[in-house]
């Protein structure tokens, strides 16, 4: 089985969010970047688990980003990816990213592309679906279980108020969410091994962006909580009805 895992870097969840250039750019001063959590913990780890369970399999990670993305790529190799591809570009929008991934996927016979469900910075949830459409493959999103037997995949995905188990065939794009795998911490052997694994740098495929972010806004100001005494709970109900008008 050949599995492609797109990975990206995002600001650490505890980062202070600030903007620069008249609120048109994310201010990355002092921000620590990490591998997008769903990419690392679920998409990549499940890919590595599937590889370990199926002899002769290969896991390739792909990143669309500048040279400073190599740190997260090395981590992915340490977790167990066999090799890595970096498309040397600064992503302009999701369609641009998806086009690069799809273009690379077409050069090799992958059975599976496993993306994270969304990145935690733009929460945009686009790349997986776009790659699937560009490749004209089936795709299942919000997946928390994935089993493969031959060319049949059985997946459990989140739906409103529960889960649904579906069956479909490879090739397939999967959007990973929590519980798809048990996150791993890279061990010394993995870290040492990652140093010698190849990172292939491929040139960008020209694509025009279809969207742009024109400005960012921060929430107005911190809320001021109105406290109600525990001895006067009825007051809370009154406030929710008369003041907040939500009941």
């Amino acid at each position: 089985m050949k599995i492609l895992v797109p990975i990206t870097k995002v600001p650490d969840t505890t980062s202070k969010i600030a903007f620069a250039d008249n609120n048109t750019k994310f201010n990355s001063d002092g921000v620590t970047f990490i591998m997008n959590p769903t990419d690392e913990w679920y998409a990549l780890t499940r890919a590595v688990e599937l590889k370990e369970a199926n002899a002769g399999s290969e896991v390739v990670v792909i990143n669309v980003g500048a040279a400073d993305n190599e740190q997260i790529i090395r981590k992915a190799l340490a977790i167990g990816a066999d090799r890595a591809v970096r498309v040397d570009a600064n992503p302009t929008d999701a369609f641009f990213v998806a086009s690069q991934i799809a273009a690379y996927a077409q050069t090799e016979n992958f059975d599976l592309v496993i993306t994270g469900k969304e990145t935690i910075d733009f929460n945009s949830f686009q790349v997986g679906g776009m790659v699937a459409e560009l490749l004209d493959w089936q795709a299942v999103g919000l997946v928390n279980k994935l089993e493969v037997a031959g060319t049949t995949a059985t997946l459990t995905r989140e739906i409103e108020g529960g889960t649904e188990t579906v069956e479909t065939s490879l090739p397939l794009v999967v959007g990973a969410t929590k519980d798809l795998a048990q996150a791993r911490i890279p061990n010394m052997k993995g870290i040492m091994g990652a140093r010698t694994k190849a990172i292939q740098v491929v040139p960008v495929t020209a694509v025009e962006s279809r969207t742009e972010i024109t400005s960012f806004t921060l929430p107005e100001k911190a809320k001021q909580v109105k406290l109600v005494s525990p001895d006067n709970v009825g007051e809370l109900v009154r406030l929710l009805h008369e003041e907040a008008k939500v009941i």
Binding site: F95, A98, N123, F125, Q126, A132, L142, R210
Partner: peptide, 22 residues
């Protein structure tokens, strides 16, 4: 919603359209 999140980007690609998620 759950289905729309994976569908929106596919429709956008199919129509050569720009897409706003959410």
């Amino acid at each position: 919603n759950q289905n729309g999140k994976f569908l929106g980007p596919r429709i956008a690609v199919r129509l050569s359209a720009g897409y706003i998620p959410g």
